[in-house]
């Protein structure tokens, strides 16, 4: 269909929106994403029965966290569309992109903050983990 949609949307492909976890969405924001949306199948049409419904709950969970940590829950969203709805996909990309443009860049970008961290294991030192 050669539909165009904003180039600032980076697509992460997953086998099912049910694979999306809370921590994936948070990491995207931690790494500087201005907004994140999950595009799952239409409700009731999940090949794995409830994958998209699980994604919906996780998006809501992250929304609540983002509201409390100064980012704003409106920067994350859940959309449902089928694989046959190409025009709707492009429309959602434009819609979300426009919404995020209105909100402006993530507060992380202009704050100058540089919070960081590593994952340690009991047997290794912080230097080894880094």
């Amino acid at each position: 269909m050669r539909l165009s949609y904003p180039t600032n949307v980076k697509i992460v492909k997953l086998p099912c929106s049910g694979r999306v976890d809370v921590v994936h969405l948070l990491k995207a924001f931690e790494d500087g994403a201005d907004g994140v949306y999950v595009a799952g199948c239409l409700e009731g049409d999940c090949h794995y029965q409830v994958g998209n419904l699980r994604a919906k709950k996780r998006v809501a969970y992250v929304k609540d966290i983002l509201d409390k940590i100064g980012i704003g829950g409106e920067r994350v969203a859940m959309y449902n569309l089928s694989a046959g709805q190409g025009p709707r996909f492009a429309e959602i990309a434009r819609e979300m992109s426009e919404k995020i443009k209105q909100l402006g860049p993530t507060p992380l970008r202009k704050s100058g903050g540089s919070a960081k961290g590593v994952k340690l294991t009991p047997g290794t030192t912080k230097e080894e983990a880094a």
């Binding site: 948070l26 924001f29 931690e30 983002l66 940590i69 100064g70 980012i71 993530t106 507060p107 992380l108 704050s111 100058g112 903050g113 540089s114 919070a115 960081k116 961290g117 590593v118 994952k119 340690l120 912080k126 983990a129």
Partner: peptide, 14 residues
């Protein structure tokens, strides 16, 4: 980490 970053802080959270 997101909270501290947006608050302009250089905090380590391991």
């Amino acid at each position: 980490r997101i909270y501290f970053k947006q608050a302009g802080r250089a905090v380590t959270v391991d």
